[in-house]
Design a binder for these strands. Structure first.
Length: 272
DNA sequence: CGTATCCTGACC
DNA sequence: GGTCAGGATACG
């Protein structure tokens, strides 16, 4: 459950569960999730008091009273499962943090691609992140500069966390749809009007996803995972392509990359 | 820059 | 049995 809004919700739940508590024990159930951390470092968490949890991009930072930071990243499929330590573990439990009030935080992740790291006191991890969409520093000027260095298509650039922190594959596609920009448009060829549209689209897409918790059933995306369906804006078909090994969904009708220099500039034939 | 890789499950 | 998966990074 990645992407900024989902991670922020997870952070809020985690913070409510752990702030002010102390750790009784941490158990790593799948080696991959703590592959960069020694067993000793894990064991040394026992007894530590927890100040609270912050977030940057998709990273969650659990601040300990002794100055250390436990750094969690869900990657593709991680989530927190918070319950009582006496409950049976969920099927995909990968790590467990037992707290001093008998509650428990379980890192629940079928693919076990999530990561846990521990940072020493005073060593703030360099996460290599650009501004969050909500940051005043996330400006058209910032995007112009970031895109100017990139020769490739815009969509993969939007997934670069140094450009904008927290944007993932779904909301990158949704943002490009909202801004009516083709995902194949070379990043550095975007003009100012497109940059303005794209910046505000990203902000709005993230804001909206942050506000409304998703409802099952109703398709909550405009293009993501909607290959072959009709665009709700222009009625053309949603297509799927692969860019940098990831699926990109977009509307073949209303997302124009102004330079797709094809012969026919004839308008697409009527919509049904 | 694109591609492979970590890992496991769901789905065709 | 093959393909794909909401991420990030190491590598060619």
């Amino acid at each position: 459950m990645p992407e900024l809004p989902e991670v922020e919700r997870a952070r809020v739940r985690l913070d409510a569960a752990v702030a002010g508590r102390s750790i009784v024990a941490v158990n790593v159930l799948h080696r991959n999730v703590a592959r960069r951390v020694s067993a000793r470092a894990i064991a040394s968490l026992a007894g530590a008091g927890i100040v609270g949890v912050t977030r940057r991009g998709k990273h969650q930072l659990i601040r300990l009273q002794d100055g250390r930071t436990v750094h969690a990243h869900f990657r593709m499929t991680g989530d927190w499962h918070i319950d009582r330590a006496s409950e049976p573990l969920p099927r995909f439990a990968r790590a467990v943090i037992v707290l001093d009030d008998g509650s428990r935080v379980v890192l629940d992740d079928p693919r076990a691609l999530s990561t846990l790291d521990i940072h020493a006191p005073g060593s703030e991890p360099d996460l290599g992140l650009g501004p969050e969409p909500s940051d005043p520093a996330f400006t058209v000027g910032w995007l112009r500069e970031a895109f100017g260095k990139r020769r490739g298509p815009i969509k993969p650039v939007l997934l670069d966390q140094r450009v904008v922190a927290g944007l993932g594959n779904i909301y990158a596609a949704e943002s490009l749809w909202m801004a009516r920009i083709s995902p194949a448009t070379p990043a550095r060829s975007l003009d100012d009007r497109e940059l303005v549209r794209l910046r505000s689209a990203i902000v709005r897409v993230i804001e909206r996803a942050s506000g409304s918790r998703y409802r099952e059933g109703s398709s909550r995306f405009s293009v993501y995972d909607r290959e072959g369906e009709r665009c709700r804006r222009c009625g053309a078909k949603i297509k799927r392509i692969v860019q940098s090994g990831r699926s990109t969904y977009y509307c073949s009708g209303c997302q124009r990359g102004q330079r797709r220099a094809r012969v026919s500039r004839a308008p697409r034939s009527a919509r049904p």
